[in-house]
Design a protein around this nucleic acid. Structure first.
Lengths: 194, 194
DNA sequence: AACTGCGGACTGAATATTCACTCCGCACAT
DNA sequence: ATGTGCGGAGTGAATATTCAGTCCGCAGTT
């Protein structure tokens, strides 16, 4: 196994185990075992357990953005752009329960709160999903297609239902078919459109 | 301090500390100290730490339902009933960040997952907020006022934004005034109305 | 080609710490 | 005296992190 492979193995193992058992339910010993690595090896690649968790979060967020942006065209109509981003987001998280579970746990923890505060101070987007979605919101408000509401409220109206729905699907309470996905996105649009 | 007072003090201390530091960030010793109680006293009133957490959850959920139902009138129009329940829910959680934080942590943990599964099996509502809200959804669909969607999707469209918005407000990212509250509820209604 | 010495990635048992929970004796009431 | 509720030092298990050594591959020598 070459050098970066171990790093990857550790991150993959940690992500998988944390998604299932939570941060405090997965000891570093368990991560090392799952990654086929000595307990000490983790600390060759990461300062400590927290750093490992941050690294996983950063990677997942990057991948999520890439997925949302792939096939995206600035030239489309506003609603097309909105639907594309929402569709990508929803489908990607639906088919990757592990990623979703990890991210949810991350945001609903002291880690997430710290991140949120940092992002607010540094002036960036206030949450992880996407900057391009915010562009769409701003453009929509300017063009009069989206109601003139605080950006954060628009964001909540658009993303909130998605997160809820994904949880229900992953919990096995409902099956996600094409109809459901489309209905959800339409509902979100109706919540924010003029 | 009379007998039930200690129990109350323990629950109050635990709720407060857990809301701030998370389940695993609040040792029982810390709870005991905050409650002005010996470390062993906790175990006179609760089998173990988990039982304590369950008890707090049960109490908070009961209080939440009571708040939503107070002043509620079955005779109102559909939209009135919807708005009342949503308004109560939103305002109550907005003014009690501790309760909200505790509940969020509870639902996003193995505790919450277990509860969710139990509730599904026992046929009750799939989440904590309210049964009466579900009655409104069902009636709305029957009357043709709410879109004919799976109940869980309606629920996601209605509650998802509220949870998101409350987080933003508690994080200090936005201020919750009358306008914001009303706009949020209107947005949720637009997402589900026919 | 065979041997030797060496650097550093890797290991995992040992360590130090933290935590949930127990238990024994005290203080106060009867 | 006897009983009851309580405190808090103590216990053992679990955990993150460390560190003393192992092992592998390569560069230099013969």
């Amino acid at each position: 196994m070459t050098e970066p492979d171990k790093r990857t193995a550790i991150m993959k193992a940690a992500q998988q185990l944390i998604a299932e058992h939570g941060f405090h339910g997965t000891p570093t010993a368990m991560i090392a075992k799952q990654a086929n690595v000595g307990a000490g090896t983790i600390y060759r690649y990461f300062e400590n357990k927290d750093e490992l968790i941050f690294a996983i979060h950063a990677e997942l967020e990057e991948e999520l953005q890439a997925q949302m942006h792939s096939g995206y065209d600035q030239g489309w109509s506003l609603q097309q752009r909105f639907s594309h981003l929402m569709d990508r987001l929803l489908r990607y998280l639906l088919e990757r329960p592990q990623d979703f579970s990890f991210l949810e746990q991350f945001y609903n923890s002291p880690f997430g709160n710290d991140l949120r505060r940092d992002r607010l101070l540094s002036g960036g987007s206030s949450c992880g999903e996407d900057d391009r979605l915010h562009d769409v919101f701003e453009a929509g408000i300017r063009e009069g297609a989206i109601k003139e509401l605080p950006l954060l409220l628009v964001h909540a109206l658009a993303i909130g239902p998605i997160v809820f729905l994904i949880k229900d699907v992953h919990a096995g309470l409902i099956k996600a078919d094409e109809t459901l996905i489309n209905e959800c996105i339409v509902g979100c649009w109706n919540a924010i459109k003029v």
